[in-house]
Nucleic acid binder design. Structure first.
Length: 469
RNA sequence: GUCCCCAUCGUCUAGUCGGCCUAGGACACCGGGUUUUCAUCUCGGCAACAGGGGUUCGAAUCCCCUUGGGGACGCCA
């Protein structure tokens, strides 16, 4: 049988890394087995679901490249179907009306807790035959005894005693169906064979299996994924920086880096760290997923991101870098070929944001020198090398890397100085700080006019500094 | 509180149904080399089987207990 998996987020916020990994594993499982990956929006909570959230989730999935084969299906459009199933359950005598007040329910819970017992509904309305006209909810008649076994692909066999479960509400007073009912109906109707979801749903699984059994439906295979914790080991939340997948995009993370990072959280293939999408589809197996929760480690994400930046096609990267330059108020069109910029900076940036920042000097004069760099390199002793460089550069017609390199070398030789003694002060003069690509590449990217102008600025800086001393 | 789950370096993890583990790799960190700077690359170092009982000739690997962590217990999903 072909495998069918699904990702079923509730649109009450952004797509966060936990959800993204769940979607990723589901997607990989489907792709690996040549099956279908279905997107379903669980928006039965009318209060909290928003269209903005739906868009944010769609946007995040698109960015990550997790394309779905069917959907998105919206649960709010399937209320008739849910009611049909609820009716079926009622007719079979496997569901009943309940008119217990919230106060009574609250009391029940408190009493149970006080008695050190698990809070559960006592079945008060089971045999009361409440009139359809009085306000009521509908509860599923859960079996009283026996055991439900979940044969989970990652957790193994987990069993729950029916005595621990209670008669859950499947339809609210306002007539809307609840989660445990809709999931079961949808997974069944949509032919989902493999339910891959977060760990927090493990406790719901026996309830869902009971409903499935009552409906005489096939029970899918389950895989409950461990949680992802924040950098500090606590639960991932808004307090832990970037929660939304799209925030990573804004921070200049490549989607393939995030995917690669996420897949290694809870899954591994020997000692391999870097996986292409094709490799993942081939090698991934839910059965190999870890049982324990893992902490998100931004450092490693950054390392992977740098790796992918290094490996990426420069032309492609240029496209991605452009908006980040724009955010700094830079129009890439007003500088050298942006592909050249990318090639010069590729190995020096962990993110696209960083790449944009360290490339700023190429497009405009800097406001002030990096204090340390200036202190160390813009001293009176470098006046001569800088002046000599200025003269030599002024006379240079052919402003390109090879000739620039030769030029710096010649000046160094004529002064009997090591190349670093000339190149480094020159770098600080034209870049404003101590780090940049090779001096020849740096000069080439900045351009002749700006270079000469900045050397003058540096000479002026040295002169003033001397006066003050 | 009750039920369910989890437990190897700071972090992600390897560890084929016990021996090849004086526990391997990666990130981070520290040090060396390459280099005109930074970075890349490269070499090396630091660092863990939560604790206690068993089972066994032999346990990180199996069992039990303790401890710690997480999840669930909603007319949320």
């Amino acid at each position: 049988m072909t495998k069918r998996t699904r990702f079923a987020p509730s649109p009450t916020g952004y797509l966060h890394v936990g959800g993204a990994r769940t979607a990723l594993f589901s997607w990989l499982h489907a792709r690996k087995h040549g099956g279908a990956f279905i997107l379903r929006i669980e928006d039965t909570d009318l209060e909290r679901s928003t269209p903005e959230s739906v868009n944010a989730i769609l946007e995040g999935m698109t960015w990550l490249g997790l394309e779905y084969d069917e959907g998105p299906f919206y649960q709010t459009e399937r209320f008739d179907r849910y009611n049909e199933v609820i009716e079926e359950l009622m007719e079979k005598g496997l569901a009943y009306r309940c008119s217990c007040s919230r106060e009574r329910l609250d009391d029940l819970r408190e009493t149970a807790m006080a008695n050190k017992e698990k809070p559960r509904y006592d079945g008060h309305c089971r045999s009361l035959d409440i009139s359809p006209d009085t306000p009521h909810v509908i509860r599923f008649l859960n079996p009283d005894d026996g055991v439900v076994v979940v044969d989970d692909m990652v957790r193994g066999r987990v069993s729950f005693s029916n005595a621990e479960l209670d008669d859950l509400i499947i339809r609210r007073t306002d007539g809307s169906p609840t989660y445990n009912l809709t999931v079961v109906v949808d997974d069944s109707d949509m032919g989902i064979t493999d339910v891959i979801r977060g760990d927090d749903h493990l406790n719901n699984t026996p309830r869902q299996i009971n409903i499935l059994k009552a409906l005489d439906k096939e029970i899918p295979r389950y895989a409950h994924l461990p949680m992802i914790l924040g950098d500090d080991g606590a639960r991932l939340s808004k307090r832990h920086g970037a929660v939304s997948v799209m925030q990573y995009m804004e921070q200049g993370i490549l989607p393939e880096a995030l995917i690669n990072y996420l897949v290694r959280l809870g899954w591994s293939h020997g000692d391999q760290e870097v996986f292409s999408q094709e490799e993942l589809i081939q090698l991934f197996d839910v059965d190999d997923v870890n049982k324990s929760a893992s902490s998100f480690n931004t450092e490693k994400l950054l390392w992977l991101n740098q790796h992918y930046i290094k490996e990426a096609d420069s032309y492609h990267l240029a496209h991605l870098l452009s908006p980040h330059l724009g955010r700094l108020g830079i129009d890439p069109a007003e500088g050298p070929d942006i592909v050249k910029v990318v090639e010069a900076q590729k190995e020096r940036a962990k993110t696209l944001v960083e790449m944009a920042e360290i490339s700023e000097f190429i497009y405009r004069d800097f406001e002030e020198y990096d204090e340390k760099a200036a202190k160390k390199n813009l001293r009176p002793v470098v006046r001569e090398p800088l002046e000599k460089m200025k003269e030599a550069l002024q006379q240079l017609d052919n402003w390109e890397e090879t000739t620039l390199h030769q030029c710096v070398e010649d000046v160094s030789a004529s002064l009997e100085l090591k190349m670093g003694k000339v190149a480094q002060p020159l770098r600080v003069a034209v870049v404003g700080r101590a780090a940049s690509p090779g001096i020849d590449v740096t000069l080439a990217l900045i351009g002749k006019d700006a270079c000469l102008r900045r050397i003058d600025m540096a000479l002026e800086f040295i002169r003033k500094r001397e006066e003050q001393a």
